[in-house]
Amino acid sequence: MLVDMVPEPNSSPTANGSGERPSRSAAFPRHLGHVTDRVDDILPFVTVPFALSVLEVEQIERALDPTTASINLEFSLPSPLLTLWDLVDPPEPSGADTQHVGPGASNGGQPGATTTGTDVSIDMPLETFFPALESSLLTVIGIAILVYAVMAGLVTAGYLGGIDRRLRDEPAAIGRCLSQYGPRLVLYHLLVFGAFLAMFPFALALPGLILLAIPVVLVLGYLFYAVPFLIVVADVSLVDAFRRSAQFGLQERAYFWFAIGHALVCAIASIVLSLLVTVGAGVGVLLALVVGPAFALLVTAATVSFVQELARTGDAGRVVRQ
C-alpha cells in the first residue's frame, strides 16, 4: 500500500483551496456544503424519502391528531434510508385503544380472545399484510422480514447507488445499481433485522437487559453506520464493508466527528420539524412532508460523499493507492 501526499483537486470536498489538510472535526459541514452545491444533480432522489414518509400512513394520522402534541429531540446516526419519521415521532392519541389477538390475551386466558385497552404497541414492518396467526407464526414473521429486507435492500441500492454515481458526474443507471448492489444490501438488511429479532426473546424474558443493551446498540450503530454506504461506494463484500467500517470507527477521527455532526444537525432538525407538525396542524404536516425528505436527502448524500472520501483516502488528508 503506497501513500501519495499529493492534495486532492480543488473541486473535491477534501480540498480547501489552500493546500492544507481539511479539519476532521468539520467533516460533516464540509460534505453537507459539497452536496448542497450539487443539489441539482441529486434532487430527483428526494422522491425516495418522500415516498417512504408518505407510506407511513399511521404516522401521518398521528401527526394530524389535534389532541396530541410533542417536541422531539432525535439524535440520528447516518442511515441509508432516513425519512421524516426518523426525526419526528408523533405521540399515540390520548386514550388510544390497541387490540391484541392471540393465546391467552384476555377473558381468563381463552385462546384467541380479544382485549381492548390502553397499551404500548410494537410496530412490525408490513404487519398489515399478515393477519395474526396462531399456527406457523414463525413462518409468517420470517416471510415478513424477508419481503421487507428485499424491498429495503433494493430501494437502498437504487437510492445510494444513484446518489453515488451522480456525485461522480456519472449517469444514475438505477438498473445497474439494483443488480450490482441489491443482493448485498438485501443480505445486510436481513442481518440487521435478524439481529434485532434474535434479541427480542431475551428482552421479553429479562426486561432489565434492555437498559444494558442500549449502550451496546449505540456503539455498534456507530462502528457500522458506514456499512451500506461502503457496499455501494467501494463496491466491497458485506464482510469487508463491516471490517472497513469498524476500522474507520476505531482509527479515523473524521469518522467520529462526522457522526457527531450528523447527530447534532438531525437533533436540531427534529426540533424544527416536530414544532412544524405540532403548531402547523395539517398545513404543518404538509410542509414537513416537503422539508423533511429534502433534509433527509441532503444528509444522506453528505454521508455518501464522506464515505467516498474515506474509501478513496483512508484518511481525511491523504490519498491511499492499493
Rank of each mutant, 00 (worst) to 15 (best):
D235L: 07
D235Y: 02
D235F: 04
V236N: 07
S237R: 12
S237M: 08
L238G: 00
L238H: 12
L238W: 08
V239N: 15
V239I: 15
D240L: 05
D240R: 00
D240M: 14
D240V: 13
R243P: 07
R243S: 10
R244L: 10
R244V: 03
S245M: 04
A246D: 10
F248G: 05
G249P: 01
L250P: 07
L250C: 11
L250V: 11
L250A: 14
Q251D: 11
E252P: 13
E252C: 04
R253M: 12
Y255D: 00
W257C: 00
F258Q: 04
A259E: 02
A259I: 06
H262I: 10
A263M: 11
A263S: 12
V265T: 15
V265Y: 12
C266A: 14
C266K: 00
C266D: 08
C266V: 13
A267R: 10
I268Q: 14
I268M: 14
I268H: 14
A269V: 12
S270K: 06
I271H: 10
I271V: 14
I271W: 11
V272L: 15
V272Q: 15
V277C: 02
T278L: 03
T278A: 11
T278S: 11
V279Y: 11
G280W: 00
G280R: 03
A281W: 12
A281K: 13
A281P: 15
G282C: 12
G282A: 12
V283D: 08
V283W: 09
V283H: 13
G284S: 07
L286D: 10
L286T: 14
L287W: 09
A288I: 03
A288Y: 04
L289Q: 13
L289V: 05
V290H: 13
G292M: 04
F295R: 00
A296H: 02
A296Q: 08
L297Q: 00
L298V: 10
L298H: 07
L298I: 06
V299K: 06
A301F: 07
A302M: 05
T303K: 08
V304F: 02
F306P: 01
F306H: 03
V307Q: 02
E309T: 15
L310E: 06
L310D: 00
A311C: 10
R312N: 14
R312H: 14
T313H: 03
G314M: 07
D315P: 09
D315K: 15
A316M: 09
G317R: 07
G317C: 08
